[in-house]
Design a protein around this nucleic acid. Structure first.
Lengths: 143, 143
DNA sequence: AATGCAATTGCAAATCGTTTGCAATAAAAA
DNA sequence: TTTTTATTGCAAACGATTTGCAATTGCATT
């Protein structure tokens, strides 16, 4: 088990390569994404964008997120309660521990769990296409 | 890892004990729940109920499900896409493998995975309140 | 069996996150 | 610069779920 590093992809280049226009709203949204290493939801991105350019609309945020998602540049997570949250699809796969008090998301990865999942699916006659492992918890008080 | 058995709790008794009135719509919904061993969503329950008594409303289904959930008699699952699905909260905890083609839900349990989750959370300084492990897959073609 | 009253109902309207139709605008190709 | 076409903001639509409300119904009491 270990946390993962972060690196900043060049979304603009990726989008251009995908034949998409680099518009002013998109530029702003992409900038916000690269400057962020938490897991913001659409509304948060919208509000941050709105500071830079108040004319940006929530629809455009959603449309841009969908675009990036389809390109595989970001992942959309439906954690419990409320809105979907996004994160950069940089390195390797990881799962999430959600702090129930703060909403913070901690990433982790366990090869052993991944292996066990495979074994279970296989023993049930299935191939895993993807999975979702989310731990919901609170900071432990004592040590 | 192993599948789990099923047993049928007496919801009416539980509800009465909780000081809730046993109405005609509730009777019907409870009957449907006890007769079911899959993971129906509110709309499915509503449609099955509607056959028995066409005057039942979807709101009542939702309200009853919420009631049962609060009593701990059923669990609500937000699998990917669409509506929440419900299941009886009988025996022990289990996780779910969702058949992406049919929507079927297969229950499984792995002590080893549970243990590993605990370890991970602990090493990150957290206590797990609950978790969500869902495998999304397809029946494997060959063997 | 008839009464009384709070719990429950069905309905329509409201909610929340997200998506969509559309006419106006702006990227970028010519 | 002009043209072409993607993209925008807006408002309205969406799907799942919840809610306010007046009418009804369990059910404890007579």
């Amino acid at each position: 088990m270990n946390q993962h590093p972060a690196h900043k992809p060049d979304y603009e280049k990726e989008l251009r390569r995908a034949g998409v226009r680099i518009t002013r709203p998109r530029k702003i949204i992409l900038r916000i994404l690269t400057e962020t290493d938490d897991h913001p939801d659409a509304m948060e991105i919208f509000q941050r964008a709105t500071i830079i350019d108040p004319s940006i609309s929530l629809s455009t945020v959603y449309r841009t997120m969908k675009l990036l998602e389809e390109m595989g540049a970001i992942h959309r997570h439906a954690f419990e309660g409320g809105r979907a949250r996004f994160e950069q699809a940089d390195g390797e796969h990881h799962d999430h521990l959600i702090d129930m008090d703060t909403g913070d998301v901690i990433e982790f990865h366990s090869d052993r769990i991944e292996k066990l999942q495979e074994e279970i699916a296989r023993s049930l006659g299935y191939d895993i296409v993807h999975h979702r492992l989310e731990l919901y918890g609170r900071k432990r008080r004592k040590t």
